[in-house]
Nucleic acid binder design. Structure first.
Lengths: 236, 236
DNA sequence: GCATGTTTGAAATGTACGTTTGAATTTAAA
DNA sequence: TTTAAATTCAAACGTACATTTCAAACATGC
């Protein structure tokens, strides 16, 4: 297993990269388990065995596809979070969420449509039952996300920690699902509203939605009992 | 293929129902494609061939699993929507969203933990690439959801239709993703916050979040250009 | 230009899947 | 009790999959 540095063939069109390019496209479209190595290698026009030769297994190929983007994105995000944490005044929620925009869109430099593809892959990673991906992600990048939680906590001091936990996961769901079904949604939007929406358009639509959602007033017991017959153990 | 009405064996423990019960559990946990008929039939303690005998194919089994809940839920929702549409004053957004709570929780009468299982299945149906499910759903229940769109439109008259389209799908993502990963989330919540949360608790936490999100102020061009370098074609 | 390590190629291996088959068994009506 | 239909059962079928194998082709350093 060699890395082909300075070989006659450019790194861009090496077998490894042809595999990664085909894999990310098919993974984003169809999901990890529903994409076979045969589809990948035939789209990449390489031999079936080369996947196992270069990456070891399908599992490791999936991780390699994600790593291409994560090694660019996460340090950028970490840097932004650290910067925001350093300022004296706590940042507003929309300020905090806005720092995602640039680093995400810069993934387009990693690969054409990199931002869209990465977010779709992220969606697949969470909804396909890829246990190893959850571990992989938390193990490598858990620290970075802790900073995000801290920032949101500072922006919404009235939000109980458990409520914040749920709302951040609600928000993750919003993003991840939107990106997983991005293709279908964009098609409908164009057909019904004659509105061409790219990944940047979607991200910018998400920001005010998520800002308002995360900072929403916490429901009180009396409010809730108006709308539902029984109550969960709220006042613990 | 017979229907076993009034036989000596109660309908509840008929082969068909044993299959449906095992299938819904495994489908909700692992997804449709990642659950094999062999897993289902061995959990249900029935013969492998009985799935194809009673349901025809795996595809039709998936639809039958969902139908058990949809035939109960959708008429109830339709009734609630129609009622709200009949009143003179437009309803508030939280009023509109609240009508989901009761019908959803009544799915617990269909089966133990029916509400949770149904919502998990719904999530799987949207994230697994089951094209036939999208068709099946729209074909049978598209009319009901049109009423929901109308209600939200009345509750948020300032929201442009295309923005409402996106926000409703964002919200669908929130719900669907939350339910798909409900198990993991509930575990973390209990470990980190010593907080036992059932499906009702999650639904009630979702309501204020979604209300605020859908009704969020629409970002203006000037607001957006502060947070991002380039602009999508917003003022179409 | 030879030798060595790297990469590709075609074929085969073993496993798991959805589905089908046909005989055996159970059920319920006559 | 007889009889015909409905259901269950074990086994097999054909297909698709990830992975392995090993020989051929290739590149690279001496």
């Amino acid at each position: 297993m060699r890395l082909n540095i300075g070989g006659v063939m450019s790194v861009k069109h090496s077998t490894q990269n042809k595999i990664l390019d085909a894999a990310q496209t098919l993974f984003a479209e169809t999901g990890f388990t529903d994409t076979s190595l045969r589809q990948i290698t035939s789209m990449a026009e390489v031999n079936l065995a080369s996947v196992n030769y270069h990456f070891g297994s399908k599992k490791e190929l999936i991780q390699a596809v994600l790593q291409r983007y994560l090694v660019v994105l996460m340090p950028r995000l970490d840097q932004e979070f650290t910067r925001l944490l350093a300022v004296q005044q706590p940042n507003s929620l929309s300020q905090v969420l806005s720092v995602f925009v640039k680093p995400l869109l810069e993934l387009n430099k990693v690969h054409q449509n990199g931002a869209r593809i990465f977010l779709q892959l992220l969606g697949r990673g969470y909804t396909d039952v890829q246990g190893h991906l959850r571990w992989f992600f938390n193990h490598h990048y858990g620290r970075v996300l802790d900073k995000l939680v801290l920032l949101v906590q500072q922006a919404c001091p009235d939000l109980p920690p458990s409520e914040l936990f749920w709302r951040l996961h609600f928000s993750l769901g919003t993003v991840v699902f939107t990106m997983a079904s991005n293709e279908a949604l964009a098609e409908i939007a164009e057909a019904d509203f004659n509105e061409k929406v790219d990944i940047e358009g979607v991200i910018l639509r998400l920001l005010p939605y998520l800002s308002a959602a995360i900072a929403a007033p916490v429901a009180t017991v009396t409010q809730l009992s108006h709308t539902a017959p029984a109550m969960a153990s709220e006042g613990r």
